[in-house]
Amino acid sequence: MKLFLKGCLILFIVSTAGCAAKTPTLETGPDAQVTKEGLVKIDNSVLDLSFAKPNVDWGQYTKLYFKAATVTNDHPADYKPPRIDRRADGLNATYDLPTEALNKMSTEFGVIVASVFNEDQPFELVDKAGPNTLVIEVAVTDIRLSAPVESSRRSYSSMGKTYTQNSGSMMLLAVVKDGPSGEVLAKAADRGEGFDQWQLNTQVFNWGDVKTVYRRWVNDFKNALMMAGAE
Rank of each mutant, 00 (worst) to 15 (best):
50 S>G: 15
61 Y>N: 03
83 R>P: 08
78 D>M: 04
77 A>K: 12
77 A>N: 09
67 K>D: 12
53 K>D: 03
66 F>Y: 15
85 D>F: 12
49 L>A: 14
66 F>T: 07
75 H>N: 07
71 V>W: 00
76 P>L: 06
85 D>T: 10
75 H>E: 08
72 T>E: 05
69 A>I: 06
61 Y>V: 10
55 N>I: 06
71 V>C: 07
84 I>A: 10
65 Y>Q: 03
71 V>N: 05
63 K>N: 14
82 P>L: 11
82 P>K: 15
57 D>R: 11
54 P>I: 09
60 Q>C: 10
60 Q>I: 03
68 A>R: 09
52 A>R: 07
81 P>M: 08
84 I>L: 13
71 V>A: 03
60 Q>A: 14
81 P>Q: 13
78 D>G: 01
67 K>M: 11
66 F>M: 06
68 A>C: 03
49 L>N: 00
51 F>M: 02
54 P>A: 14
49 L>S: 02
62 T>I: 06
58 W>A: 01
61 Y>A: 06
85 D>W: 12
80 K>Y: 09
72 T>G: 12
69 A>H: 03
73 N>H: 11
70 T>K: 15
85 D>S: 13
54 P>H: 07
78 D>P: 04
83 R>N: 10
82 P>I: 04
51 F>V: 06
54 P>S: 09
73 N>C: 11
81 P>G: 07
54 P>M: 10
84 I>C: 08
84 I>R: 08
83 R>H: 11
52 A>W: 04
66 F>Q: 00
63 K>A: 12
82 P>N: 12
82 P>Q: 12
72 T>V: 01
